[in-house]
Write a protein that binds this DNA or RNA. Sequence first.
DNA 1: GCCCAGGTATAAA
DNA 2: TTTATACATGGG
Length: 276
Amino acid sequence: MEYKITQKGTEITIGSCFDLKNTFDCGQCFRWEEAEDGSFTGIVKNKKVRILREGESVIIENCTDDDYNTLWKSYLDFDTSYDGIRQELVEHCPELKCAVDSIDGIRILRQDPWEALCSFIISQNNNIPRIKGIVAKLCEGFGDELSDGYSFPSADVIAQLSAEDLAPLRAGFRARYIIDAARKVSSGQVCLEQMYDAPIEECRKELMTITGVGAKVAECTLLYGLHRLEAFPIDVWMKKALSTLFSAVEISSLGEYAGIAQQYIFHYSRINPQLL
DNA sequence: GCCCAGGTATAAA
DNA sequence: TTTATACATGGG
């Protein structure tokens, strides 16, 4: 992806395959906030940036050449052609065309696996505004203080705490799940690092040894935290959407990009609730 | 007040 | 192995 450093920040010519709102506000992440002007501000690994679109360009403010190459390029997954994947999905599975066409510019971010695991534990039986609130309180309470904001606290830090220590988060029954996850990750009982390329069935099984991590949270962790694009959250809701909207689509036939297909199916059924 | 949130643990059928 | 319920909390 072509880029240049200007006085505005790092400027990347990307064309159409990056819609900020559809990417940062689709439920895959919980630490990006939209401003009135449509720009988004977020913190990743102790770095805070503001991102905006300007025509064919994406501008990342407060982003050095080094930050771009070592962090943001990967986080925003700029080496993956999402237009290509869309095309491939439709060719592979024409039934998906209406869903793929229903939303534009979604990218799957390469988030930190621990942050994704923790965030999706918090997300269970919860709504997005409150999930964001709990995650923010977790960072403010236990993350490192940065010049302007807080980092996401490490599993090692959370592992030292008890469920009572998390009471200020108002996370309810999820507090003990967060602690259990942190302790298993911190001790190495659950090794997130090796899940980038271990057989996905083994990864699922290992994640689900954590209390409070079921099929859905495990799948979201794999998809959003470990960039396993073949991961597919097969929950009750998605089964229903698939069977009513896409009876011809077999989950197994969605192949290596099932996780991305799922994003389109989810959005399509959201804007066509009468079909469910 | 009431319903619900891209769920999961636990206890019965 | 499949099917109900409780779960903590607060947004709409």
